[in-house]
């Protein structure tokens, strides 16, 4: 190991502290705002530690079922859960066979499909949103979960296929041979051989998919309009813009919307990192 000089050590630690502050402070401040009274937040000079701490903002968002704030927040939470989970489950069940096919049964024409898939999920949404909007309108699907689930699959299926394909590539192909000879079909092989081995990759793909669906704003803004289908990002955008003066409540809504994805990401930290990685290192 290379020894560091005292100065170098000092630089390392001070940059580490700086980095920690930069990462933590904005979110910490959001939290402080959420438990402060409006008066504390609108006095000058700004005091960093609130005079009295109250969780009333949280209560009015998730505790008081009769208020419209709580109603719109809780429904949005419900809609986000339904849409993100359904889109993820659906996408994975489509992506797994596709990824297997691309990895195990390559063909010249089929391999270009992978590149089409990659190009697909990188496509800017504005390129697709107009026909999707009018198609959903004529199918009577605007303001429903189905519209969002379908559209999100368009992004998640190619993404997860790509992610899984590069992971399946790492599994030795010999494992498939014996059961094939014994007469198993490909679906059985996927289910009994490939998936159990690829579990971590599957977890990473699912996690990335849920996070992407949870975060999506553009389609949700355009395809939903009320509590029946509106997801959290849209609810929060509406919420924040309408109540410019109520910093505390806005912040509390932000914190609440952050808890599910952040805690998920932390528990599955390894999966997240490997998910991010495979997207950038392999083709």
């Amino acid at each position: 190991m290379i020894k560091r000089s005292k100065i170098q050590t000092a630089i390392v630690y001070s940059s580490a502290i700086l980095l920690g502050l930069v990462l933590l402070c904005p979110v910490l401040w959001l939290f402080i705002m959420s438990v402060s009274s409006t008066k504390d937040l609108t006095t000058l000079p700004l005091s960093w530690i609130p005079a009295d701490i109250s969780f009333n903002n949280y209560i009015s968002l998730i505790g008081d079922f009769d208020s419209t704030s709580a109603e719109s927040f809780l429904y949005a939470l419900r809609n986000s859960l339904i849409v993100a989970i359904s889109a993820t489950v659906l996408s994975l069940s489509v992506a797994i066979p596709a990824a297997y096919s691309l990895s195990r049964l390559p063909g010249k024409r089929r391999s270009s499909l992978l590149f089409i898939a990659i190009a697909t999920f990188m496509m800017p949404p504005v390129a697709l949103v107009l026909p999707l909007y009018s198609a959903m309108a004529s199918l009577g699907l605007l303001n429903t979960h189905i519209a969002l689930i379908a559209v999100y699959c368009g992004v998640l299926v190619p993404f997860t296929t790509w992610l899984l394909k590069s992971n399946f590539d790492a599994i030795p192909i010999d494992l498939d041979e014996a059961p094939l000879i014994d007469g198993a079909n490909r679906l059985q092989i996927i289910w009994y051989i490939t998936l159990p081995i690829a579990k971590p990759a599957l977890g990473a793909a699912a996690l990335m998919a849920v996070l992407m669906a949870w975060d999506e704003f553009f389609y949700a803004l355009l395809f939903t309009n009320d509590i029946r289908a509106k997801t959290l990002p849209v609810a929060i955008a509406d919420f924040a813009a309408g109540r410019v003066a109520d910093y505390g409540l806005i912040s509390a809504a932000g914190i609440l919307a952050t808890i599910p994805p952040v805690s998920m990401a932390y528990f599955l930290q390894k999966s997240l990192v490997s998910g991010l990685m495979s997207g950038s290192v392999k083709g």
Binding site: L23, D215, F217, P233, V234, I236, A237, T258, A265, Q269
Partner: peptide, 10 residues
């Protein structure tokens, strides 16, 4: 991970 997982709108 914190900024990464924080929803864009938030």
């Amino acid at each position: 991970i914190l900024p990464l997982a924080l929803p864009t709108v938030v």
